[in-house]
Amino acid sequence: MTKHHVSTTINGEPAEFLCEPQQTLLDVLRDELNLTGSKEGCSSGDCGACSVIMDGRVACACLALGVEAEGRSIETIEGMAEGETLHPLQRLFLEEAALQCGYCTPGFLVAAKALLDRKPDPTETEVRFWLAGNLCRCTGYDKIVRAVLSAAAEMRG
């Protein structure tokens, strides 16, 4: 099977990998690049655990091919903290107990970051609609929504 050589940008750094054409971007991130923060929940676009930002838009890595990363910019949960300093969303998820098992958390954080990058002052309803593609089995969503609103308020200063 011929492998594709893909040149891309991941979390701001140039990256290259080899992949088979049918491998999803999620498979490539997790299995080839050891970026295991993006999770596989459903592989059908329903749960958002695999959320990554592709060229500025949040998308499901399970529904993209690895080869599609060629020439694009991909942001994953691994790029969210600055060194040891957590992103305000990450810190507020911890402080406000917006996670239990944590499996959904990277996807929620990536999706929420994409929202706040676009809209620094979302309403609660906007947060809930934006995060409708992220499922959580544990928290009941309320704390997640509140943590996103707190992070938005903090980031606006």
């Binding site: 676009g45 838009r57 949040v58 998308a59 499901c60 529904l63 994409a114 593609g133």
Partner: peptide, 9 residues
């Protein structure tokens, strides 16, 4: 059509 993740594609 779908969530924001789906809308991106």
């Amino acid at each position: 059509i779908g969530s924001v993740q789906i809308q991106a594609r």
